[in-house]
């Protein structure tokens, strides 16, 4: 006798068909995009034979190439800085009581939950006021560009890193640190030999999340960018608004590949970092759902 919990008969078939449709909905657009990035011809709705010319175009396009480099530099720099600051913040919040702790905690959550548009507006007004002040007081003619983009990315990435690292720290027993102290380790050595190796997977996951966020962001960057420099997503966003072209298709596919690669890397890393017995999936689920706000963040764009 089979359980009544498992859907049976027509219900099961209906549910199963429904699930397949959901997956088709998920993957069809991506699939079509990939296929047509290889299609010869300007018409993105009809197959015009196989070509790699659009990918060639991607690498030949000067503005795209400079945007790619800005993106990479912004992503790396903002990730490094926010990993350091975010990890320190996580340690402070999980392991210490201090004055102003609750205010700090709230302040650290805000960048994650604030709508992107609001954050973008904040950055626009801030930099316009800030540069005006610089001009008025120091006669400095600074412009928005690489620096302002990086500053705004760090502002939201600190929070993402600290959320992920905190989750990891909360799961790590403080007794391990006490044991190290008991075994003659100084505070620094306790961190170096016990705390840090233990939270390393969290730090790595946080770094990958920060990297992804930075490479993904359009709205905040658009408002923080200036004539000085712009990132790939912002540049592509501009192209898209002007219309669909096979060049954008190819660029999109490359961006897609980059993000899939980052996720795969993060899953592999979590799997690899010796969390004995944890399945790939649980690692992946944690990576995705621990910062559930990653979800919100993305959709705001």
């Amino acid at each position: 006798m089979s359980s009544t919990v498992q859907p049976r008969g027509a219900t099961k078939i209906a549910l199963s068909v429904h699930s397949w449709l959901v997956y088709i909905f998920f993957f069809a657009p991506i699939f079509v995009l990939i296929v047509f990035s290889f299609s010869d011809g300007r018409n993105v709705g009809r197959w015009g034979g196989f070509t790699l010319e659009w990918y060639q175009g991607f690498f030949d396009h000067n503005q795209i190439q400079s945007a790619v480099w800005v993106s990479i530099r912004v992503a790396l720099l903002s990730t490094v800085i926010s990993v350091v600051l975010g990890t320190l913040a996580a340690l402070a919040l999980e392991r210490f009581k201090f004055r102003g702790r609750q205010v700090f905690d709230a302040l650290l959550y805000l960048p994650i939950i604030i709508p992107d548009v609001t954050m973008a507006v904040m950055m626009l007004l801030f930099f316009s006021e800030f540069f005006e002040l610089l001009d008025a007081w120091f006669n400095l003619d600074w412009q928005k560009g690489f620096g302002s983009i990086t500053i705004s990315h760090i502002a939201f990435n600190i929070s993402f890193v600290s959320v992920v690292v905190r989750a990891r720290l909360a799961g790590m027993s403080e007794v391990l640190e006490e044991a190290a102290l008991d075994l003659y380790a100084t505070r620094w050595k306790t961190f170096r030999y016990v705390t840090f190796p233990q939270i390393m997977p969290g730090v790595a996951a946080g770094a990958l999340l920060a990297l992804t966020e930075s490479l993904d962001d359009v709205v905040v960057t658009q408002f923080a960018a200036g004539p000085g420099a712009t990132t790939l997503p912002v540049f592509v966003f501009g192209l898209i608004r002007r219309g669909v072209t096979p060049l954008v298709n190819a660029t999109s596919v490359l961006m897609l590949t980059a993000s899939v690669f980052l996720v795969a890397l993060s899953l592999a890393f979590q799997q690899f970092s010796g969390r004995g017995g944890r399945s790939l999936l649980r690692g992946g689920r944690e990576a995705v759902s621990t910062p559930n706000n990653q979800m919100k963040k993305e959709i705001y764009q």
């Binding site: 993957f27 991506i30 999936l281 995705v288």
Partner: peptide, 21 residues
């Protein structure tokens, strides 16, 4: 679950663009 998460992790701009195509 994995196949729900793949589109979820891919670039947001690209996912919207795919529909435009």
């Amino acid at each position: 679950l994995i196949f729900v998460m793949i589109p979820f992790w891919t670039n947001f701009l690209v996912r919207n663009y795919a529909w435009r195509v």
